[in-house]
Design a protein around this nucleic acid. Sequence first.
DNA 1: GCGACGGTAGACCGATCGGTCTAATCGTGC
DNA 2: GCACGATTAGACCGATCGGTCTACCGTCGC
Lengths: 183, 183
Amino acid sequence: MKDTRTKLALKAGLLFQQKGYHGVGVAEILQEAGVPKGSLYHHFPNGKADLALAAADIASTEMLRIIDDSFSPATDYANGATTLCYKLAKFFDIQEGKIGCPVSATLLEGPENATFQLALKEIFNAWMARIRDHAIRLGETPAQADADSQRLFLAIQGGWTLARATRNSDVLRGLPALILSAA
Amino acid sequence: MKDTRTKLALKAGLLFQQKGYHGVGVAEILQEAGVPKGSLYHHFPNGKADLALAAADIASTEMLRIIDDSFSPATDYANGATTLCYKLAKFFDIQEGKIGCPVSATLLEGPENATFQLALKEIFNAWMARIRDHAIRLGETPAQADADSQRLFLAIQGGWTLARATRNSDVLRGLPALILSAA
DNA sequence: GCGACGGTAGACCGATCGGTCTAATCGTGC
DNA sequence: GCACGATTAGACCGATCGGTCTACCGTCGC
């Protein structure tokens, strides 16, 4: 049994991904999580905004884990990148295409807020840095790794949006063929 | 002097891009546009949803125009793609990075709605098709044009998000170097 | 002058928004 | 078993949400 705080952040994150920060009311989060209002403001004194930050943090950690899981067993960069795209496509399908980038849907659609802005930037940078680390570990030069990690990040970010628009995860599976031809 | 209908759609589009569909209230749109409530529901019987569709349509047309303006004077595909990225970066800077993709911010963040879903898909396809047309006109094979247009679309979509997160349009200007090295 | 009518103006509606507050309950150390 | 802080429970708040409705205004044809 998860503690209330985690349960709230998890459920909030899922809902934010589906409908965006402003598209979800705290009442809906509370009901879905089966938690009364008092608990929310006990665990997250700043309410919805705190919840968004916590949810984004969880999602970010999860994404880093997926990156590691994809690249760790890989024999080269292309192999790891392909695995990552396929893993994300599978994740996309499980959620029936109803889900956006867990971080941008939460923080970018949120209020004009310096904290959100900073958190978003740091999370994205962390993802790219992690991909870059794996690229270097797998034999790429730092310059190659810079370009490849950014290329992959942009393709996934854009591809996810297109996949949502078309309700079809094939875009994500086609990403490796599209961006690895350069290498 | 623009007619009321157009003024509303224009202003609504701008606000949706900044804060997402759910992040803007009709009262705010009305106030910004200097239009009373009665006029909204006269011109857009379905209210906010109609407004979003109209705004997305205007934004889509505008984007097609920018694509044409970029590729028409180009001597080859790389040249046109580069111009497009720079034009978008400039547009991004004018709005001070406060603005999202005019279409996805409006339709993807909107309510779970088959009409929105379909419109979004068609607009994205229209953009890619337009880029593809120019690529072919500039001498690419259909297969090349398919890959290049999708690659450019994804890079712009992802790059725009990253640019917003970092509040820096340089990502957009770096796109050509990142995705054209393949050719 | 006078209806007809497309359009404007904004008061008003119930529902929901995010957030506060007090009371009850739980868990643990004594 | 008792006291006390941590946590839960939900009634309640003013503000705002999207939307409806009636009254009014301007400009036509006549």
